[in-house]
Nucleic acid binder design. Structure first.
Lengths: 252, 252
DNA sequence: CCAAAAGTGTTCATTCTACACCCATGG
DNA sequence: CCATGGGTGTAGAATGAACACTTTTGG
């Protein structure tokens, strides 16, 4: 905002009614909002895209599945809160989270006026080991394809996050965060296919990715596969930075 | 949010301190936030991209330039507030606004904890006639290229909105909202050049746009120009809807 | 030797880019 | 008749899509 017309007497001119007139309203009347964060954590495993959910052990919606989320402290930055809350409820920390949207419908929370901030993140499930903590009763990795109805407006929040992410994943190399350090090109292809619900031609996919020159070719190959093992690659983040500062843009 | 562990006594378990322990905190302690909206209204005139600013006639930052913005009422949806606030301060109504980001730094507002929602809109300056109203003292259309420092974190909010918009304008035909109903292709090209700070080849630009088949060719031409008048076109919104539901996507 | 997936090459169609050129109008 | 921008055509490069084919491994 901005417009805080705080007068000496701590009143504010506003027209709460629809008569167009202005009324003096106590300033404190505007400071009744709660603010929360809901974390949409996507994971990847067995060629499937999954979502981290908790079973709520607190009212409201106690017992329902929901996104890990909670109220922001009055003296806490929102991004800090996002990390803190996710850690409190799942133990996961040190990950990159980014804002999606804000949800501010008047009646979206039964306990009062709470506006919530969607945050999303992408992780390789094998590299983290979340466990239910705080007031989270249980914790699930749920296949995105078989998502049930969630508490609050969380179904909407997930849908929006997914859409934003699908856009983003096409234009920025964030998909790599879902894979182990070393991966085969077919792993990468499966990941994108899961993400975008689309299939790609193997030859064309690898030509495109390799032409970007943002992968390091390693001297290793897959093992424990019952066919010709694929060569492993790693993502070269610094090379990507360098290229994109020169105008290159990832586009899958 | 979500996690509101409201107990019978109206307390909430939280760890405000960094000792990891949980404390019972009065529930009301979490409901101290103010919520505001700041409107980033882009306009287009004389082949230039402009931004609608007001001179603040209220504390804080009284006398400074700022985005039109104000506090949201406790019983008001945020999108509704965005429209209401813009109308109160500038008289502009009936326009399409969309969320950009949320700004929630603890110290961003001198009067208390206020988190703000960025909203943006695009209008053809010639079609609106905003005037300073409410506590807005004056109103300006400022050339985006010569933007001064703004009140609060509004400089950042504008920068983010512009970036989001530049992405969006490439992939959705929202640029047309900045033009009159009837326009020449060169007008459209100038608009995109102003928006994206980039120049296009005339022949290629028109081939691309026309190949999308989302414009109606009119039986009119420009007048009052001292050269061969260009043919006028109008945007065919329903055709665009139809095409995009069939998989077409605008991409400039 | 077979199944299965890795990995490569080629062809054809489409799109992009650059640039040259002609056209219509006002002054 | 000239300056100004409107409007079109084309050649060559770059990219994309489809698909056939060879290679390497485990069993």
């Amino acid at each position: 905002m901005s417009g805080s017309r705080k007068t000496e007497e701590n009143f504010y001119n506003a027209h709460f009614n629809n008569d167009g007139a202005y009324y003096k309203i106590p300033f404190s009347r505007f400071f009744q909002f709660g603010v929360s964060v809901d974390c949409v954590v996507f994971g990847y495993e067995d060629s499937k895209l999954k979502l981290l959910l908790i079973k709520r052990g607190a009212e409201p919606y106690k017992g329902d599945w929901a996104l890990p989320g909670d109220l922001v402290y009055p003296n806490e930055d929102i991004e800090v809160a996002a990390l803190r809350i996710l850690k409190d409820l799942t133990g996961i920390e040190n990950l990159f989270m980014e804002q999606t949207m804000v949800y501010g419908k008047v009646d979206r929370h039964p306990a009062g006026r709470v506006i919530t901030n969607g945050y999303y993140s992408l992780i390789d499930i094998a590299q983290y080991n979340p466990t239910a903590a705080g007031w989270a009763q249980e914790l699930f990795w749920v296949d995105l394809k078989s998502l049930q109805h969630l508490a609050f407006d969380h179904t909407q929040i997930v849908a929006d996050a997914l859409k934003i992410l699908q856009e983003k994943v096409r234009r920025q190399p964030i998909g790599f965060e879902l894979l182990p350090q070393k991966f085969a090109l077919s792993d990468l292809q499966s990941l994108y296919e899961a993400f975008l619900s689309e299939t790609f031609d193997k030859a064309n996919f690898r030509k495109k990715i390799l032409s970007m020159k943002i992968l390091n070719e390693l001297d290793e190959v897959q093992n424990n596969v019952s066919h010709r093992p694929g060569r492993l690659y790693s993502f070269n983040a610094s090379r990507y930075q360098q290229l994109s500062s020169k105008g290159f843009s990832f586009e899958l």
